[in-house]
Design a protein around this nucleic acid. Structure first.
Lengths: 321, 321
DNA sequence: CTGAAAGCGCTTACAG
DNA sequence: CTGAAAGCGCTTACAG
């Protein structure tokens, strides 16, 4: 049950708790004899002393935790990469990253009050008053860039790139394979808006939108409908949906890209291994991850956050479109 | 900067902190007048009071956090599913799940001392003295079942199932597509051991083992080597590796499964959409997730953990093998 | 029926 | 050069 406290270390070393604290924290301007210092250090190590962060947090009002709040929707390798990068960067400052998936309606407030993190990083947007409450509690909040009017939403641009690629390949009637997952509807709609805009500008008909689940049957049904409508190229919400379309085309006996071109989004690891290799659109995760870490560090140091890197999403040309 | 404290609520309500604590915690056997109770509740709500968990944790020595420690290797949807389930189950008890990816050498000790979780759940094995230290600190530890001698390691069985399927399909020379990722070497080796054992029992030659990266070039090279050695069926470490083998076969112009049968592990969402649909081996994640949640709850209640469900890994027959 | 007081483990002015 | 004391916000015996 124990839990070695600084008092134990003090008693065992024959000094006061003050001295123990000074030594262990390396408090500056506090000359303690080398002998004492060594003795305290040695005792602490021998006893396996580790300070109670609860006490420390209570006293200082601040912990060494960075809480990352993830959205409800399934995060892919993209987000994992960002978190990895963040954790690495922050470890150098003695901070630990903790991840929380928001689930249903459980209020976030309780959690950050409980954890008392130094910083809360939102990979999903926070309610404005939630942000205010955290700030008032002295917690740094690094919110998603989404609300920032200076930062262009990259989603429509992704859709444009998809559409332009399909049209460049000679397709005149475009289909859009959206997702039926309501949790990511916002992204899907924003991408679709980009596809729509590109079609309009290029003088093409509005894309034929069909929701496609990540299974072959759904892909087949959608492919049949697109073919019936004369659709020659499909932009998919993401690579997984594109895989379903690919499977549907294969079952329907269509050649890709000759009979039907397909283009995804994300460049997941398996995209290059699709049959045929999937043409897709990707954002520079590394850059994005670096930017996030930089913003957290800036918040920590109380300096201006770095400007958002203006790296547009890029086409990854392969064989499917 | 504030942070409303129970003292604020007490003063504002004209009662003592004791009363505030009693009311807010619904302490039993402590008759407080309904009027007072209402007043306190109302004041707390009005002030937006939320208790400081740091103080609470310091006092009680226990927080309402469940810390899940994830391995260094990339967790797939499998682990995400388990965590979802766990979080749901635990939310009902007022507990929040926090996830930590172990990164490099950063000591775990610091983290759990910092968080003071009620329970630490290890999805990766802990060092025995780490477990002891946590237990000594009064933290419930739910370790992976791996060390339990009563629980059979399912990995070799997975390999056996793969080999048996290939042999049942008429293959007499087996290849094994292992991973080059050292972090999961343990799993790959255990599965390979199962393949080996099955081959030996069936009177076949030892499988030809080749490390395959998740890219087409690596898959192609491996496929060439296997063909040269007369290998007719390949068991892959997991589905991703299997995709690389599939891609290699396609590039080499081989028909799957006629010329080369391929079988994966995991049944990732894209497996069914592979070309051809990937035959694979899966473990019952739902059952596994339920079991994990049950173990955590049992630890919390101080009751015997439920026995491990003896659900063997199962073949998911599709077209690739 | 409600309040004063102690104490969880830590850090940091403030005295010696 | 080092120690006694206060206080972070909470809960809970213990008195009234």
């Amino acid at each position: 049950m124990a839990g070695v406290t600084s008092a134990d270390v003090a008693r065992e070393s024959g000094v006061s708790r003050t001295t123990v604290s000074y030594v262990l924290n390396g408090t500056p301007n506090t000359s303690i004899s080398d002998a004492t210092r060594r003795r305290v250090l040695e005792t602490a190590a021998r006893l396996g002393y580790a300070p109670s962060a609860a006490a420390r947090t209570l006293r200082s009002g601040r912990s060494d935790l960075v809480l990352c709040v993830l959205p409800d929707w399934p995060v892919g390798p993209v987000v994992e990469t960002m978190l990895d990068h963040l954790a690495d960067e922050l470890a150098g400052r003695g901070l630990s990253v903790l991840v929380h998936h928001v689930r249903g309606e459980r209020p976030l407030t309780e959690l950050w009050r409980t954890v008392t993190p130094r910083t809360v990083v939102g990979l999903t947007p926070f309610a404005p008053d939630e942000v205010q409450a955290m700030r008032r509690a002295g917690i740094q909040v690094v919110d998603t860039d989404a609300g920032d009017p200076d930062v262009e939403d990259p989603q429509p641009r992704i859709g444009r790139i998809q559409a332009e690629r399909l049209v460049a390949g000679g397709r005149t009637r475009i289909g859009y394979a959206t997702t039926s997952d309501r949790r990511v509807a916002e992204f899907a709609d924003a991408r679709l808006a980009g596809v729509r805009a590109a079609c309009a500008e290029l003088g093409l008909a509005d894309p034929l939108v069909i929701a496609v689940d990540v299974d072959a049957a759904s892909g087949t049904a959608a492919v049949d409908a697109w073919r019936a409508a004369g659709v020659g190229g499909v932009a998919a919400y993401n690579d997984e949906v594109a895989f379903a379309v690919l499977a549907g085309a294969r079952i329907a006996g269509l050649a890709v890209p000759e009979d039907l071109a397909v283009i995804g989004v994300d460049d997941v690891p398996l995209a290059a291994l699709a049959s045929p290799p999937l043409t897709t659109v990707t954002q520079s995760i590394d850059r994005e991850a670096e930017h996030l870490a930089a913003r957290v560090l800036a918040a920590l140091d109380g300096v201006e956050p770095p400007p958002h890197p203006h790296d547009a999403p890029k086409l990854v040309p392969r064989e499917s479109a």
